[in-house]
Structure formats: structure tokens, C-alpha cells
Design a protein around this nucleic acid. Structure first.
Lengths: 149, 149
DNA sequence: CTTGACTCCGTATCATGGTACGTAGGGTAG
DNA sequence: CTACCCTACGTACCATGATACGGAGTCAAG
């Protein structure tokens, strides 16, 4: 029948078999035990979800190390809650930073698209100009000095 | 005096000299000509801004190839406007996809932080659970079937 | 009970995005 | 004019994140 062996797990997660093994070796997902009575390893649905999360994270510019940090944010009774909280808050700041930059790029793209049919003066001719013109990335006050370096 | 030679440009952009050269080799930035009367290449301020944009793009999960595509979105009279428009719109969709996923992760982190002081039932104990519970990443309809694989 | 597809595991290879290094030459402050 | 630091340019090397390959074992359909 349809035991979730590695090949099926890989297909379900949209990656290759070798990628699953690679993540196992690197501690991002757990390798299920070999069934006591012999046979192939069986992967829980959770692993498939985890792998999809990993791919998503990568597309957002997180390294595997950082994704591992995200995945290790667990608030169970055995872990120090204030520590998890601190780490989660640090990650949240990273995410907000990314959101701000991405929003800036989004605004620049929209400006470019608007400028494109091109009747009238072309205000923004390239994405760099669009970014500066619209002051694309609304930066948090803390980082403003960095911009004017 | 302070001619913007490669070393200064690199420091201004927050990268190494070799990185500047690497981007030149790969066509992401232009190599300024050697001054006719001899001397060192002088880098315009625009290059520094471009390099900073490249680094930002990478932190958002864009490859150098994709960043090159972003930078080549120019609406000048010599380029086909409808083509630029089409490419810009495709990039905009990519950006919106990233924004949606990132927003989902942000919500999951906030839920985790809220759950952390931990009086009462811990609703979300890990980021994966937080993602599912809050249905973190509102997926576009097109991708929904993929989720329920 | 065999054939074909799949797993397991180890090692090798690859693409991307840099980083380092060596050597030759330019520029300038003391 | 001479240290000393910088540029120029080519080649080599590196880390990350996979991807491929080979050989032995497993499973299940016909």
C-alpha cells in the first residue's frame, strides 16, 4: 500500500530524495527509525510539512542554519520559556526588516509599472530610481542613519 | 584626495573589493573605464547604491540572476515598454508571494511569543503549529491544491 | 520466483556566490 | 626618491546547498 517511504515523502514535499537525506544529515528533520521487523523507513506527515517550510524559508533568504533556528523555537515545558521568547523576538525583528525591504521593492515595481505606458514624463525609468524616488523602503527610525551612510 | 576607487566603493557598499569585481564579471554592475591619462578606475555613487541593492535582494532570497533581471527593468525610450511592463508585473507577483509567506511567518512568531509566558494552555508550541493554527501563509488559490497533497 | 521499482548508505560531483593570493604596477606622503 | 599602501588581474580555493552514482538489499506484482 501507500506507506510514506522516502520517495513518496520527497514527491509530496516537492524535493528530491537526496534533499530529504541531506536535511536529515544536517539535523533539520529527524530520520525515522527503521521498522523493527525490517523494511523501509516511514516518514510522518509532519516531516513533509517541515520540508516545505524549509523550502519556503530559503525562498525568503533564510539560510538552513537560520531555518533550523526557527524550527527550534519550541515552547514546551522542558525548554526555558524566556529564552524561546527572546529568540522568537529576535527572529521577528529580522522578519520585519525583510518585510520593510520587500515592501519597498514592491512599491518601486508598482511605480515602474505605472510609469511604463509612458505618456508624460517618465518619472521612474529604472528600479533604482523608483526605489529612491518613492523612498521605497520605509525604514524603521533605528536604521535610518544606516541609509545615509 | 578622495577619488572613489574600488576600495572606497567597496567600503561604502559594505562589501569586499573582490565582491565588486565578482559583480562586474557577472554583469551586475559596470566596470568603469580606466582613466585615459592612466590611474585607477573611479566608481560612480550609483554603483555603490546598486551593490547595496544587490545585497538587499539576496537577503530576500533573490539569486544574482533574478536581481540582474530586476536591475534590467528599465523604461527608457530605447526599450520595449510593454516588455518591461510584463516583466515588472511578473516580478511583482513574485514579490507578493514572498510578502504573503513572510507575513505568515511573522504571524506565527507573534503567536509563539504570545503563547510563551505560558499561563494557560499552550496553544502553539512550535512554529510549525503556529503556522498551521493561524493558517499563517494565506496561500493564493492557485497553490492551494499543492498544500493538500 | 523473478523482474522491476524502490530503499539504503557512502562517496563524489556540481552550481552559486563569493574569498584569498600572488605578482606587477600606480600614487603619494614624508 | 623611497617606503608603503593601494589598484589590477588572473588563478586558486572555499562554504553552502544540493545532486549524482554505485552497489547491496527490499518489496510487491504478475
Amino acid at each position: 500500500m501507500s506507506a510514506m517511504t522516502i520517495g513518496k515523502a520527497a514527491r509530496a514535499a516537492g524535493v528530491g530524495i537526496e534533499t530529504i537525506r541531506f536535511y536529515e544529515r544536517n539535523g533539520l528533520i529527524e530520520q525515522p527509525p527503521k521498522p523493527a521487523g525490517g523494511g523501509f523507513r516511514v516518514y510522518p506527515a509532519d516531516t513533509v510539512r517541515r520540508v516545505r517550510f524549509i523550502r519556503q524559508g530559503q525562498e525568503l533568504g533564510f539560510s538552513l542554519r537560520q531555518i533550523g533556528e526557527l524550527l527550534s523555537l519550541k515552547a514546551d515545558p522542558a525548554t526555558d520559556c524566556s529564552d524561546v521568547r527572546r529568540r522568537a523576538q529576535a527572529k521577528l525583528e529580522e522578519v520585519d526588516e525583510k518585510l520593510a525591504r520587500l515592501t519597498g521593492i514592491r512599491a518601486a515595481l508598482e511605480e515602474l509599472i505605472a510609469a511604463c505606458p509612458g505618456r508624460g514624463a517618465l518619472r521612474a525609468c529604472s528600479i533604482m530610481e523608483a526605489l529612491e524616488g518613492a523612498d521605497g523602503a520605509p525604514m524603521s527610525p533605528r536604521r535610518k542613519e544606516e541609509k545615509t551612510l
